[in-house]
Nucleic acid binder design. Structure first.
Lengths: 195, 195
DNA sequence: GGACTTTACCTAATGTGTGTAGACTGGCGT
DNA sequence: ACGCCAGTCTACACACATTAGGTAAAGTCC
C-alpha cells in the first residue's frame, strides 16, 4: 500500500472535491482524512486549522475561475466578452458548486491577497474596455456586473427559481442581454437629477 | 427566579438575535440555551433539531423582510417603488446581518411554503406594475431585480467592495438608477437576434 | 380534594468533530 | 552505522448535537 505523501496542496484539492460532492459547509477534516487514508491529526502538520483549509479552497477556486474567465474572454469584446465572462462563472458554479460556494464568503487575507485576486480585477477591467464608459463609472459598472452575475447564480443555486416558469436558462440569457444593453447605453449623470 | 416559559417562538427569536450578533453559521443550540438560562437538551422539546431551528430563523427573516418591503413600496410606483424595495432589503441586510444571511441558502419546505414567501412574490409583482413590461418578460425582470439586489448586498457583506473606491453607497445608488433605466427601456425581443 | 395526566424542564450518556501533546518510524546526510 | 528530523501515529481534552429517561409542578377529571 503505497501512500502519496501528504502536502497542503493535496489536502486542499481533496477538500475542494469533497466540497463539490457534499457542500462547502460539510467539509470536515475527518472526512478528508478518511478519503486520504490517514488519521485526522496528521492533517495538522500541513494545514493550520479548519479555517486555513477553507481559505485554501477559496484561493484554489479563485485561481481556477480566473483561468476560465481568462480563456473565455480572450479575443472577444463587447457582448461576446460579457457572455464569455458570465458563462464561465455559471459553468463553474454548476460544475463545481462547492468550490463556487467557497467564494461567497468573507475570505481570509491569504485568498484576498493572492495573485489570482489581482488577476481577476484586471480581467473584469478588460471586459469593460469593449464598452466606452466614463472613467469614473467603471467601478460602478464592475460592481453591477459582479452583483448581477453572482446574485443570479446564488439565487439559482438555492432554488429561488424553482417555483416559477420558465427554467433559469431563459432568464439567464435575458439577463445577459439586459446587462449588455445597459452597458451600451449607460445612464448619463443627467438622469440622476431625479430624486 | 421566574422563568419565561420556553416556546419555539422564543427560541427562534433568541437564535435570530444570536445570528445577528455572531453570524448565522455560529448559531449553536448550546449558546441559545445559555442565553435562555436553560440546559441544551431542553430546547428539543420545542425544536426538532438544529436544521429546524435554522429554518425557523429563515421563516422569521422572510416575514420581517416582507413586512418592511410592504411598507416601503406602499403608495409608490416606478422608480420610487424600486428604490423603496431595494432600500428595504439593504437596510435589513445591514441591520440584521444574521437574519439576512439566513435567507441566502436553500430553505426547508417550512420556510418556502410560508405565507411570507407568497406575500413576497405578490410584492415583487406589484413593484413591476409601475413599469409596463410585456407579460412574458415579467418573470425575467423579477429575477433580474432579485439577482442584482441580493448580489450587491452579498458582495458588500463579504467585503468585495472594500478594496476599491468609492464607498459602496455610491455604487448602490448608481445600480438602482441603472436598474430603473433598464426596466423603463426593457430590451425588446428584436435585440435577441444577435448571437 | 385526591389521583392521573401532561407539560416542561432536568441529568446522564453517546457520537462526531476540532485541535494539542507526545511517542514512533523510516529515510537521509554525515 | 548513527543520529536527525519530517511526517505520521495514538491518546487525549473539549465543544456541540442529539437521544433516553427521570422529576416535579400545573392542570384535569371524578
Amino acid at each position: 500500500m503505497k501512500r502519496i505523501p501528504l502536502t497542503a496542496t493535496v489536502i486542499i484539492a481533496e477538500a475542494a472535491d469533497l466540497a463539490d460532492e457534499t457542500g462547502f459547509d460539510d467539509v470536515t477534516l475527518s472526512a478528508i482524512a478518511l478519503r486520504l487514508s490517514v488519521q485526522t491529526p496528521s492533517l495538522y502538520s500541513h494545514v493550520r486549522d479548519r479555517a486555513a483549509l477553507l481559505d485554501g479552497i477559496t484561493a484554489l477556486a479563485l485561481s481556477e475561475l480566473a483561468d476560465r474567465v481568462a480563456v473565455a474572454i480572450a479575443g472577444r469584446a463587447g457582448r461576446l466578452a460579457l457572455r464569455g465572462f458570465a458563462e464561465a462563472h455559471r459553468v463553474y458554479s454548476l460544475e463545481s458548486p462547492g468550490r463556487w460556494q467557497s467564494l461567497q464568503r468573507r475570505a481570509g487575507t491569504a485568498a484576498v491577497e493572492s495573485s489570482a485576486a489581482r488577476c481577476f480585477v484586471a480581467l473584469t477591467d478588460a471586459l469593460l474596455l469593449g464598452y466606452d464608459l466614463p472613467p469614473g463609472e467603471r467601478v460602478h459598472a464592475t460592481r453591477l456586473i459582479g452583483s448581477t452575475i453572482n446574485g443570479f447564480l446564488a439565487l439559482e443555486r438555492i432554488g429561488s427559481f424553482d417555483h416559477s416558469e420558465p427554467p433559469p436558462e431563459v432568464s439567464w440569457r435575458t439577463t445577459l442581454d439586459a446587462l449588455d444593453a445597459l452597458l451600451r447605453a449607460w445612464p448619463t449623470d443627467t438622469e440622476k437629477i431625479h430624486r
